[in-house]
Design a protein around this nucleic acid. Structure first.
Lengths: 362, 362
DNA sequence: TTGTACGCGTTATCAT
DNA sequence: ATGATAACGCGTACAA
């Protein structure tokens, strides 16, 4: 059998050395005079190792500048140290902060987020999930997904899942819930406290659970005021879809209908911006003629003219907590953290009814 | 040897079935009655295959629901079908559109983008690049990076690189350049055409190449007007850093200095928004007292009060083209595509000097 | 504690 | 054209 071991034909190395000085674990092992297995064990903290071997290996790693290959790790160990993150639109002004929080906190733990966009489409979202699974992500975080609760629960049987924007309990899954309802109630209450009664509401995309919750909050504030007796005029509830354009359109319809109102509460800041523009076009000033309140507290909300009163939605914290929860799930622990409560940020777009001019009143 | 094959202890499969019904290429090969190599060849279009074998394999793939494992592919073939994308902030309102364009066009070609944030820091950016390389991305796209030209050229020797925001030529690298200078000149020219002469300029972060170009464009417009004789008052050039807050601060300083001005050109929309707010706080109205022009044409620019006149920066197209260029580089071709020219979008924040009130004039 | 041997799922090389 | 077979770089039972 030693017959063809004459070494007459030294085999070339295959890879041409792309992606830098490729130092393998095996090379480290050789340099340190130990087996590859030991190096692996040291890297992963598995089992114990003698101090001197560890020192030798550490030295070799540093000297050779060894960096483990995540791809090989993924194949061998089943862990890729990457977390799939499904967002609805990678360029959403709303989720931006969450993505940042995720990136920072997952990164600190050695995990890399894999961002994909679901485009508010259940089918597309499912395709994203499958793509992520095929890439062997260690877990999946779904930001306000369109998938059914059942689908997510099923997914959670295969790998850790963290979802936001819905209340859902299932093994291997953690739901991070923000209280949209009381946030909306807070905002409406603020306008009621200012003396407003004819408060228009621009609702969000009905397919979005948050939208329904915010509408409930709006109604709840009226109910709380009057022990259930008072309910807002249905004519003051306009349908929007969370875009600026829909906010503008809602105001147009409202104005055309001739129904008076002194304040507007939009289910998100983007619609509030659109509403402000439509009011402006009709010669109505915020807040002198109409008070305006938004929801989400986008970064730009404090720089609009006038700065927008809105409900702060802790998106960065959302990302941070989602990362935290995922990390705990991965560690086999059960997350318990919750999001902070909604908080009203009063700026300059809302004033007392008494301080407004007559034009906006009915 | 049959001694311990009594099946008294049925060996568990190692992987517990995570990530769905794991169907391997080998299983497909077996089902189709061919070798694994052939299946691989069919999948990759390498070499020729007989029609009947191909049919059998296709059938088996469909029947078993086989989906190739990108991780194993990455290890074996050296290609991961993933492209690293370095952005400065994952939640930047400016680059959002570019990320979307990248995701869509890379995805259509079967590639997945890996988004990482450089945080405007050369060191951090370098770390990102190394992380991406260790994950064996097939190429890297750098959106307005802070790395040196030399560092990028060096990187391009290892893998295809596409950069934006700088003019740079190197083998394996393609630079996608947007003409910030003429864009800024366009905007300034617009204000000059409207009769303005005291045009303040809020400059961007000096560490950003675009910022310098936009300043040059501002000056060039004055030079063009007067055959080089006219040059804007240095007191009208304020330093900003591309944030809303810096735009506000710049206006504050300008107003405090007492130097009159009838128009403001901000080097990006965010600073223009900040400027608008600062003017508002000082009781100056846009455009009645001061005309205002921005740069970038953010999605929100058309919904501010009043809608902002600005230079359209084709960010979505930027992402699309960067993806295209990367794909061509990957295919061994030499990209030739260029970005469309800057285009002024006139909205309602800029009017003729003659139409303005006296307050903004000096 | 440490080393050996094998497996992860695919591509590439070398035969045939 | 097609099939064995050896990598790819690492994790991990199992043995020592």
């Amino acid at each position: 059998m030693a017959l063809n071991r004459t070494d007459s034909k030294p085999r070339r190395v295959r890879r041409t050395g792309r992606s830098g000085g490729k130092v393998t674990l095996e090379m480290v092992a050789q340099a340190a005079g130990v087996s590859a297995a030991s190096v692996s064990r040291i890297l992963n903290g598995t089992a114990s190792v003698s101090a001197d071997k560890r020192a030798a290996v550490d030295e070799a790693i540093a000297r050779l500048g060894f960096v483990p290959n995540p791809v090989a790790r993924g194949l061998a160990g089943g862990r890729t140290l990457s977390i799939g993150v499904i967002t609805q639109a990678i360029d959403s002004p709303f989720y931006g902060g969450a993505l940042r929080g995720l990136e920072e906190h997952l990164g600190a733990a050695g995990y890399s987020p894999l961002f994909v966009s679901g485009q508010w489409d259940a089918t597309r979202e499912q395709a994203c999930i499958e793509a992520l699974c095929s890439r062997r992500v260690d877990g999946i975080i779904v930001l306000s997904g369109r998938s059914s609760d059942a689908a997510l629960a099923r997914l959670a049987r295969d790998l850790p899942v963290v979802v936001t924007g819905r209340a859902l309990k299932a093994p291997g899954l953690y739901a991070l819930h923000f209280d949209d309802r009381s946030g909306a109630q807070l905002a409406t209450q603020h306008l009621l406290d200012l003396g407003h009664r004819d408060i228009a509401f621009i609702a969000g995309d009905p397919k979005h659970p948050d939208a329904a919750e915010r509408l409930r909050g709006y109604r709840a504030a009226f109910a709380a005021l009057s022990s259930g007796a008072l309910t807002p005029d249905p004519a003051l509830v306009l349908q929007g879809d969370f875009t600026e354009a829909s906010g503008s359109a809602a105001i147009e319809r409202l104005l055309d209908a001739g129904r008076g109102f002194s304040a507007v509460f939009a289910a998100n800041d983007q619609m509030a911006f659109g509403a402000a523009l439509a009011l402006h076009r009709r010669g109505l000033h915020v807040p002198h003629d109409v008070s305006l309140v938004g929801f989400d507290d986008l970064a730009s909300a404090s720089f609009t003219v006038p700065p927008l009163t809105t409900v702060h939605h802790p998106v960065y914290e959302l990302g941070q907590s989602a990362a935290q929860a995922m990390l705990q799930l991965l560690a086999g622990e059960t997350p318990t953290l919750a999001l902070s409560e909604p908080r009203l940020v009063v700026r300059e777009s809302s004033v007392a009814l008494a301080a407004q001019g007559p034009r906006g009143r009915r």
